[in-house]
Design a protein around this nucleic acid. Sequence first.
DNA 1: CAAAGTTCAAATGTTGACATCCGGACAATC
DNA 2: GATTGTCCGGATGTCAACATTTGAACTTTG
Lengths: 222, 222
Amino acid sequence: MRRARRRGLAHEAADRVRDAIFEGLVPPGAALREVELATALDVSRGSVREGLAVLEREGLVRSEWHRGARVIDMSPADVDEVYTVRAALECLATGTAAERAAPGHLEELSVLTDTLERALDAGADSPALLSLDMAFHDRVYEIAGNSRLTQAWHGVRSQVYLFQLTRIRLGHDQYRSVVVEEHRRLVSMLERGATPALAEAAREHVDSARRALARMLADPPR
Amino acid sequence: MRRARRRGLAHEAADRVRDAIFEGLVPPGAALREVELATALDVSRGSVREGLAVLEREGLVRSEWHRGARVIDMSPADVDEVYTVRAALECLATGTAAERAAPGHLEELSVLTDTLERALDAGADSPALLSLDMAFHDRVYEIAGNSRLTQAWHGVRSQVYLFQLTRIRLGHDQYRSVVVEEHRRLVSMLERGATPALAEAAREHVDSARRALARMLADPPR
DNA sequence: CAAAGTTCAAATGTTGACATCCGGACAATC
DNA sequence: GATTGTCCGGATGTCAACATTTGAACTTTG
């Protein structure tokens, strides 16, 4: 069993605000005022403040001295930055995971992909698919078992999530048509161990997402 | 000019505590009590708390719910984790920097290496050399110009610093004998653009440090 | 005597009040 | 008329008091 974690109001507050951002209730670039959030969430400003610091660590929010916090926006440059870093991390993570994976782990990743496929076939909405998608990758990082690597991943994870949400919002057909296949490919590569081809597959998986989003941002299909 | 930054007491507190850790005043594994630090630094507990959160983001400190913060320790596993992640980041950073570097940037890195060499020849102490060493790498990240990458770097930077400090404390001869040459090699590779050989050099530079530290930890020369 | 329950000091988590800072609107100045 | 100075509303930064949790010493119980 995974041990239960007491977390405190700050993390709770961070979760609420993060979800609000993901749901689009707080658009990119919007200001996050401490008093406002404090009354809305019914906690003190101190807790909100600490929560915003958590979101800042995740890169979802940027704050400046005496100017408060704002939701990040997503210029094409931002997208490039995030996916470039993600590609490097994902490469390392899949490679390490391949080295350390027990057979059970690979089986588990395979099952996660099955779940994803079934959800797709059952007509689940794209955000739900994205959650499963992310869960798969989270598991890879866990299997790699490098806490610093996981921490680095958490530094871009929420941004990836936000960007991918935008991607599927602008046009989810392309996403739905490739997710499962790309994950299957990753699993099959993982089974063969830490090869250069695996690193290439991981890089390509990330880059495919980057290209799709870049296309969407440059030429919104409205 | 680089813009001036107001930062607040929390960052100031973080700086003090960080320095204290680097100077060995607070040994690995030691508890960092909020009230204690607050009185010592003459700031409120809130500011100390926020400062500790900064150090936690840097990986120098680990804190748990209602159990406070402790300085990380450095098991061989920790060393592996940090240098593994650092290698991946450094690869990406040098590659990107090579792509984007203006001639002036390469010149600047060369000058930084000259400074390092002069300091070495002038008999500067090893911690001073380490500062110059880190400044070089910081500049590479700046030149790469990827803020997410820089942030990921900051997530391991302080740990690298602490580990390297230990390395030179246990035996600085080896360090002094290779720093300059390894940096020269990096600069010359950077000048040839983003080649596979550059990535290899960056990886080797990091790995050399990892091996040196692992050797020291396994077999302390006392 | 070992295991579970109790108690208590010490530390952290949380809060609301007070101090400080920012940015824009308006007035003064050269 | 463009620049500089002053004011003020609204926001964040800081603080010290109060609430909660923890771990360990102690007691109880089977």
